[in-house]
């Protein structure tokens, strides 16, 4: 449905040349929900804006529904954009129009009749669950309701593709879940292809079938969600997943951390579980087998696509010999291990 071929985007900032996107290739199948994840400044916003040519790629092709958008004239592009819906982080609703009239806008632009607009908009209000907010102005809506209006508006012209530009980033976790549920519903009911970009791992995990990781304007990796998170092939992808798990050492621990082992101090260890790790209850096993106590400081474990993965910070309390044996054993189970230091 969406094909992005060798897309490059270069920005010039005075004499500085910024390669916002370099040689991006993506293929998004009809009816799928595809996520692009990356940290801020990675180029994901530029990428999604290239799909409807809000940002014109410096080179490369963007093919949506078998039409190469880069070859169209301004007028043709305007027409074609009506079949590509888009929602935004900050909703971008017109404050001067009621909910009804906001949703009606794309239909007005296309010159639809009053009666058709009315029936269409009322159906959409029903779909997004805002029938009772019909004549309310956006200023009186919550963030989640605003995004629902924006979704209804994006669907008004029966698009084949929906682009979501950080659509849940301004919403709280509970609202995010309800919006994602709505997106999943319309994906199923309308067989709509959804491309979303986000920096939130939870969004990708919650809704996407396929994901691409973008970093520094380059496509680092793409594939099914379970695969990418469980078996990241590249260092960048791994780093990104690690950064989204965000497991930092607490401040007071950091101060007490020493590089060498002294009397009465114990190693602080970071364990990284990946798809390659042996799927077994290793922590309790190690504690029993090697006679150490494991004190978990923090942990961020996840389960996606049948694979457990995540990070854990833990103290291994016991004799030096026992701790080393335990570390050795865990390494054999393909768990990535790093001794961060020793705390007393």
């Amino acid at each position: 449905m969406i094909e992005i071929k060798n897309v490059n985007k270069v920005f010039y900032q005075g004499d500085k040349v910024i390669n916002a996107l370099s040689d991006i290739n993506l293929n998004i199948a009809q009816g799928s929900i595809f996520g692009v994840i990356g940290s801020s400044g990675a180029g994901k916003s530029t990428l999604i804006r290239c799909v409807n040519l809000l940002e014109r790629p410096t080179s490369g092709k963007v093919i949506v529904d078998n039409i190469d958008l880069t070859q169209l004239s301004e007028q043709e592009l305007t027409q074609t954009r009506r079949k590509i819906g888009m929602i935004f982080q900050h909703f971008n609703l017109l404050s001067s129009r009621t909910v009804f009239n906001n949703i009606a806008l794309p239909l007005e632009l296309a010159g639809e009749s009053k009666s058709k607009i009315k029936s269409k908009v009322e159906g959409l209000l029903e779909l997004v669950g805002l029938a009772d907010k019909r004549d309310v102005y956006p200023a009186n809506l919550s963030g989640g309701q605003k995004q629902r209006v924006a979704i209804a508006r994006a669907l008004a012209s029966d698009p084949k593709v929906l682009l979501c530009d950080e659509a849940t980033s301004a919403l709280d976790p509970a609202t995010t879940i309800s919006i994602l549920e709505l997106l999943r519903k319309i994906n199923k009911e309308l067989n709509l292809t959804i491309l979303l970009i986000t920096h939130e791992m939870a969004v990708v995990k919650g809704i996407c079938q396929e994901v691409a990781i973008i970093g520094d304007g380059k496509l680092v990796e793409n594939g099914s969600v379970g695969d990418i998170f469980a078996h990241p092939k590249t260092e960048l992808a791994r780093e990104f997943i690690r950064s989204t798990l965000d497991l930092s050492i607490p401040g007071d621990y950091k101060e007490r951390l020493q590089a060498t082992r002294i009397e009465n101090s114990f190693p602080l260890i970071r364990l990284e579980f990946t798809g390659a790790s042996v799927d077994a209850p290793v922590i309790s096993h190690v504690a029993r087998e090697f006679n150490i106590d494991i004190s978990i400081l923090s942990s961020n474990m996840d389960y996606v696509g049948g694979v457990k993965f995540g990070l854990m910070l833990a103290e291994f309390i016991g004799s030096e010999d026992c701790a080393n044996k335990a570390i050795q054993y865990l390494k054999e189970q393909k768990i990535e291990l790093e001794v961060l230091g020793y705390v007393s």
Partner: peptide, 23 residues
């Protein structure tokens, strides 16, 4: 962002002026 949203909806410049910017 409002102008951008209108562009993404397939609004012509004159429509953006009349239906978005001025209101």
């Amino acid at each position: 962002g409002l102008v951008e949203a209108a562009q993404a909806m397939g609004a012509k410049p004159i429509q953006i002026i009349n239906k978005v910017l001025l209101p």
